[in-house]
Design a protein around this nucleic acid. Sequence first.
DNA 1: TATGAATGAGATTTCATTCAT
DNA 2: GATGAATGAAATCTCATTCAT
Lengths: 234, 234, 234, 234
Amino acid sequence: MTNRINKKERKKHIMNAALGIFSEKGFQNATISEISKAAGVSDATVYEYFGTKEKLLFSIPEQISDENTEDLQRVLPYIKGVEGKLRAFLIMFMRLYETNPHYSNLVLLQLMSSREFRNTAAHAAIRKSAHMLLDCIKQGIDEGTFRKDADPYLIRSMLMGTVEHLFIHWHMQGMPKRENPIQDYLDPFLEIVLDGIRAKTRTNTITLNVKMEDGEVVKSIFIEPSPLIKEAAE
Amino acid sequence: MTNRINKKERKKHIMNAALGIFSEKGFQNATISEISKAAGVSDATVYEYFGTKEKLLFSIPEQISDENTEDLQRVLPYIKGVEGKLRAFLIMFMRLYETNPHYSNLVLLQLMSSREFRNTAAHAAIRKSAHMLLDCIKQGIDEGTFRKDADPYLIRSMLMGTVEHLFIHWHMQGMPKRENPIQDYLDPFLEIVLDGIRAKTRTNTITLNVKMEDGEVVKSIFIEPSPLIKEAAE
Amino acid sequence: MTNRINKKERKKHIMNAALGIFSEKGFQNATISEISKAAGVSDATVYEYFGTKEKLLFSIPEQISDENTEDLQRVLPYIKGVEGKLRAFLIMFMRLYETNPHYSNLVLLQLMSSREFRNTAAHAAIRKSAHMLLDCIKQGIDEGTFRKDADPYLIRSMLMGTVEHLFIHWHMQGMPKRENPIQDYLDPFLEIVLDGIRAKTRTNTITLNVKMEDGEVVKSIFIEPSPLIKEAAE
Amino acid sequence: MTNRINKKERKKHIMNAALGIFSEKGFQNATISEISKAAGVSDATVYEYFGTKEKLLFSIPEQISDENTEDLQRVLPYIKGVEGKLRAFLIMFMRLYETNPHYSNLVLLQLMSSREFRNTAAHAAIRKSAHMLLDCIKQGIDEGTFRKDADPYLIRSMLMGTVEHLFIHWHMQGMPKRENPIQDYLDPFLEIVLDGIRAKTRTNTITLNVKMEDGEVVKSIFIEPSPLIKEAAE
DNA sequence: TATGAATGAGATTTCATTCAT
DNA sequence: GATGAATGAAATCTCATTCAT
C-alpha cells in the first residue's frame, strides 16, 4: 500500500516512528515490531533499510545533528563577535531540544548509555559541533575578548552542561508543561558566564570617580589594579 | 563454603561486583550470571538478596547517594558562608564521581535513561541533595550574598550541569588518564559562577591601593564604582 | 522448512501435540520444549501462535468443546422427547471422552484444578453445554415427562457426575483396556435415572390385568395406588 | 519457640497449614516457604518431617481418608440393611466434604491431576473405602435387595460420581454460600437411585387397595404385574 | 532437633534477525 | 522491493532441596 512512496521518504518515515518510540520507551524497551507497526511497514522492511536496531537508533541523531551543525555553519559567519556566536550556538541547541523533545530525550537520555555510540557518525556529528563551540571560545580568548587564563574546555562544559542539565531535568520530570520556554534561561545564564570570563584588561583604562577619605573627588584616574581588586573583579 | 561471611558484607560484595559490571556493559547488557560469578555467589543468591535485577541496580546509587548526602549534612554545618557551602557541595560530588568512576558512570550515563529510576529511593536520595543545594543557593540570595535577581534553579543547573558534563564527557571519551584530576576545574569554575551572581554592593567598601599617575601611592581609599567598573565587576 | 503448511493446520498440529503431552505429564510437568519438539516446530513458534503456555492449554478444550456443543445443537432438534435428548447428550459426551482419552484426561483431571480455567472461553463453552443439559431437564419437568418435584440441578449432577466418574476412574486406573466400551454403561445407567424421575401420574390410568386369588381375571381396572405402591413406584 | 510442642502435634500443624494453602492456591502454586511460614516453622523443618513437597501433599489425604474409613467401619456394622449402609456411606463422605472444604478441594481437584497419586497410601485408603462401597452394593445384589442385573460398578459410579460432581461444581464456582447444605441433596438423590435398582419382586406381595369401576373396594389382592406395570414401576 | 543460608537446575518468555516467496 | 513466518539464543527468575551449625 505504501509502495508508491519513494525510498528516502519511507526511510524518514521509519526514523520518525522510531524516534517517537525510542524516546518514549527507551531504546531497550522499544521493539522493532512496534516501530514497524507505527511506521506502517513490516519488520523485515525496517531491516531492509537499517540493518540492525542499533543502526536505526544511530541513524536518527546523525541526520538531525548534521542538519543542526549545517544550520550553525550557515548562520555563524553572519554573527559578529564571539559572544554573539556563543549565544547563537546555545540558542540553536536549546531551540532544537525544546522543539523536538523526542530528539533531546534520545540524545540526552538514551544515547549516553550506549557504549557504541562513541563510534558512530552521529557522535562524530555531535563532536563536530562541540568542536566548533570550542573553537569559538578559543577564538574569544585569542582575540582578547575572554581572559587569557580562561580554560576553553571548562567554558564549553559550563555552556553545554548547563543547557543539557536544564533539559535532562525537564525530561526526567516527565516534561512538565512550562509557562515560559526553557530558552528564557539563556540570557540570564549567558550573562553570568560571559561576565565571568570577559577580559578585564579594560579596567586599566577605566575612568573612575574616586572619593578620597577626606571627601574630595578626583576624576579621571588610571588604575593599575592591585592584587586585591583583581581578585574582586574576577 | 562462603557461609562464614556475614550477610551485610555479602550484600555489599554483590553490589560492588554489580556496580563494576553495570557501569562497564550497561544495565541491559549485563547479566546476573556475570555479576554473580564476579561476586563468587550463585545467581539464586543474588535474587535472594535483591529480588530483581532492577532492584539490584537501584540499590547501588541508593546506598552511595545516601552516604554522600549524610557526609554533606555532617560537613556543611561547619562551613561558614554560602559560598563555602556551595564549594563543599561541589567538591563532595566531584570527589565522589572521580573516586568512583563506576558510580559516576552508573548515575550519569545509565540511570538517566531509566524510566523507573524516578520512582526509586535512590532517586529520592539524589533529589534530596539537589534540594539541599537549592536551599543553599536560596539562602545566599536571601542573606544578600547573591544578587536578588538570581534564579536559584538556573544557578543549580549551572553548578550541577557543569560538573556532570565534565564527567559525562570524560566517560564518553573512555575515561582517558588525566594529568590533573577533574576536581582542579572546581575553583576556576566556581570563581566564574560566583562572580556572576555575587551581590556587588560590597565593592563599595573595598579598600584599594591606587597608584596615581605621578607615582604616589595612596592607600585605603573607598571607591564608589562608576557605572563602567560596575559593569566590569559584574 | 515447514513453511508450506498453512497457519490453521499448524495451529491444530501444535494443539494436538500439546494435548498429548499435557494429558500424559500434566500441565505443570509438561514443557513447551517438549511440545514444540513433538510438533516439529520451535519453542518460539509455539509462543507466536499461542502467546503463553496457559493460553495454549486453554485453547484445546475451547476448540473441542465448541465443536462438541455445535454437534449437539445440530443433532438435538431432530430428536423427539426429552429422554431421547438426554440420551443424545450423554452419548455425545461419552463418545468424546472415550474417543479422545487425552481430551477427557485434560478436562476431567487437569483443568479442574486450574483456578484460572473458570475464566476462560473454554470453560464458558463447557458451561454452555451444561446449561443446555439443564434446560433439557427443565423442559422434561415442565412438559410433565419428569416429576414436578425433581430437582433439575440434582439430575444434572447425577447425569454428568456419573459419566465423569466412570471416566475419571478409568483414567486413574491407567486406562486399562476394556472389553466393552464405557458407553455400554449408558443405557443401564439412564434407565435407572429416568425411571426414578419419570412422572408416575400415568399409573393412575394404567390398565392392569389383575389376577384375583380365586383365579378370575378382571380387566380394565383403574387403580388408585395405596401409599405402599406409591412408595414402591417412586 | 515452638520447640516444646511434641513431634506429632507439630506434624499435624504443618499438614494443616499445608492443606489450607494447597487447597487455596493449588499444589503447584503453593510453595514450601509459604507453608512453613504459615506453620511457623522453617522450610528445613518441613523437609525434616515430610521429605518432599509431594510427600507432604500425599500425607494429608492419607490421614484423613484413613480416619474416615475407620469411622465407616465402626459405624456400618450397626446399620441394618444395605440401603441404610449406602446412605451412611454417602452421608459420611458428604459430611466430610462439606465440613472440610479444604480437604474436598484437595481430593477432588488437586490430587486427580497427580500421576503419582495412584501409587500412594492415600490413594490406597481411598480405594479401600471405594471397595467397601462396592462390597455393600454387591451384598445388596446378592441378598436380593437390588436387582440381579444391576452392575455394581455402575451403581458405585452413580453414587460417588454424583456426590463428587456436586462438590466439584461447588468448588469450581468458588464455594458460594448456600442456604441449605449440599447434604440435603442426599435423600432425593438416593431415592432415585435406589428406586431404580431395587429388586421389584416385592411388588408381587404388595397389598393394594383396588377400587373397581363400580366403586367397590377390594382389599388384599396379590398382584402379578403385567409387563406394563413392570415398566411403570421400574 | 531446627534452621538460616545457599544454590542447582530449569522453564518460560522475548525479540532481533533471517529467508523464501 | 516488501513481507509473513519462523526461530536461535539467551536471560530472568523461581523453588525445591541440601547442609553446616
